[in-house]
Design a protein around this nucleic acid. Structure first.
Length: 476
RNA sequence: CGAGGUGUGGCUCAGUUUGGUAGAGCGCUACGUUCGGGACGUAGAAGUCGCAAGUUCGAAUCUUGUCACCUCGACCA
């Protein structure tokens, strides 16, 4: 039996069981290779194309809300990191440091950015003089490095790609609103581009970003019942403004510190994509971010006219703006079917002599594996189908997620729901003590975010001091 | 950093207990027959068995050391 066939069979035999499944699928589908340095990955063209699509989709949304892209240096003077006390404490254990350059020892070591708040705030301080200069809303697409102890491709690597947005505003209200706005941008993006529904909320004191006043996060439910943090948005208050002397002259003629925020998502989103949609045959990638949206497989290629027709189709799809690939390699169609299914291409089109004779094409959608005949060359039908696949994936994902949200009003209830791999909504006072207690009892494999608002009042009826709803999740 | 495990052609592994010519499947190359759900035949290329030292007539196999990687924990996007 061919190795690939064996692989697919093995996967089919198992319940969705990360992480071995996850690693196998990633390597097999040519998303990444391991890099020579532990914890680093070489993102291969197919994997990188997903990232490019994520970038495009996010950039579109950024543009709508006035975010501009820029770039800041990789190396940061060590002293910058030390300017914000909590920040340095949070990141010091995991930074890589450059001590030598040009053959000599450097006077001041340079850290490879674990995040860029410090260097960007330093520049912001120079850019802001008047309230007229505010707000400054900047994003950068970059790589960062955090020397993590254990790593897994896309989910936690030493080096990773991300976007980090940084803003500074004249008032507390504006900065906090920006934090919320971006969290909502992420949420909408996760649902409509990645087809992954997310829960958003405030993270606990213990888990907030080093140097932030408040950190908000979004959590996505993976197929194995575990939660993955898919993005964060921080309200930084005046913490960084004071450390980096970010002052401006306000309308009233007074010199004031700005209020800042930062927010980011990373290549981890690709990991989320794999774990939220994958099935026994491999990846399932939603059309919006799929590197290849439609693959055309000519059947009985050697017969006259088949390849010509396939090329014609490809051209028609391309003209309609579809990302399409024609697989004319010398291999059996069955082999190609499996290959592209494993790689998660949302729609497959088969064209053979019989189809051409009947004026039809056989179309299979990856999300449901259903086959259906369409009129040969019906581009609009394919465009519609791509939309249907996209929305169906979100729906499916939402049902799965919702079936894994439980409610509880006691520690025992929380523990039980978490053990059986669920999100738990429960009333919570929000204090550190309860957090520690919960963490300790769940062996610290849980993450807590809280939602205020409507549901809050419902829970308050339960009595006690409950003023928040806890969304309590098992961390990956 | 704690606890386990694994290092043998490109990949997945067998062989190690009991030392005796380096193996299999897949992949790869060439030619031919095939092609509507992972085709087949014939011929071929490819490995200082993670590294180092030791024991021995002889080491993938035994001993010691060392390095790398993987899994599970503590820390984190």
């Amino acid at each position: 039996m061919a190795k690939e066939k064996q692989f697919v069979k093995d996967v089919a035999d198992m319940e969705v069981d990360f992480p071995q499944w996850y690693t196998d699928v990633i390597l097999k589908t040519e998303l990444v290779d391991y890099g020579p340095v532990k914890g680093t990955m070489v993102i291969r063209p197919y994997g990188y194309a997903i990232w490019e699509n994520i970038q495009n989709e996010l950039n579109k949304r950024f543009k709508k809300v006035g975010v501009k892209n820029a770039y800041f240096p990789l190396l940061i003077p060590e002293s910058y990191l030390k300017k914000e006390a909590e920040h340095v404490e949070g990141f010091a254990p995991e930074v890589a440091v450059v001590t030598h350059a040009g053959g000599n020892k450097l006077q001041e070591p340079l850290v490879i950015r674990p995040t860029s708040e410090t260097i960007i705030c330093d520049m912001f301080a120079k850019w802001m003089e008047s309230y007229r200069d505010l707000p400054i809303i900047i994003n950068q697409w970059a790589n960062v490095m955090r020397w993590e102890k254990t790593t897994r491709p896309f989910l936690r690597t030493s080096e990773f790609l991300w976007q980090e947005g940084h803003t500074v505003h004249a008032t507390h209200e504006e900065a906090e609103a920006e934090t919320q706005l971006m969290l909502n941008v992420y949420k909408e993006f996760a649902e409509n581009a990645l087809a992954i529904p997310v829960l958003t909320g405030k993270k606990t004191e213990k888990e907030k970003f080093a140097g932030a006043v408040a950190t908000y996060g979004m959590e996505a439910m993976m197929l194995d019942g575990k939660s993955l943090q898919a993005g964060t948005s921080h309200y930084l208050g005046q913490n960084f403004a004071k450390s980096f002397n970010m002052k401006f002259l306000d309308k009233d003629g007074e010199l004031k510190y700005g209020y800042s925020s930062s927010w980011g998502v990373s290549t981890r989103l690709i990991g989320a994509l794999i774990m939220a949609h994958g099935d026994q045959r491999g990846l399932v990638i939603p059309p919006v971010v799929a590197p290849i949206q439609v693959v055309i497989i000519p059947v009985a290629m050697h017969k006259e006219g088949v390849l010509d027709k396939a090329n014609e189709l490809k051209q028609a799809f391309e003209n309609a703006g579809i990302r399409v690939e024609l697989d004319s390699r010398d291999a059996s169609p069955g082999w190609k079917f499996n290959e592209w299914e494993m790689k998660g291409v949302p729609v497959r089109v088969e064209v053979g002599p019989r189809d051409i004779e009947n004026g039809k094409m056989m179309v299979m959608r990856r999300d449901t594996l259903e086959k259906q005949e369409y009129a040969l060359g019906d581009v609009n039908a394919i465009l519609d189908l791509l939309k249907v696949v996209q929305s169906n994936m979100l729906e499916k994902s939402r049902k799965m997620r919702d079936s894994r949200i439980k409610e509880a009003d006691s520690i025992e209830g929380i523990l039980q729901a978490v053990e059986t791999k669920n999100f738990v909504k429960a009333p919570w006072c929000g204090c550190r003590e309860c957090e520690d207690k919960i963490k300790e009892q769940t062996q610290a494999t849980s993450r807590i975010i809280s939602e205020d608002s409507a549901e809050n009042k419902v829970c308050a009826v339960c009595g006690k001091k409950a003023e928040k709803v806890v969304v309590y999740a098992r961390a990956y």
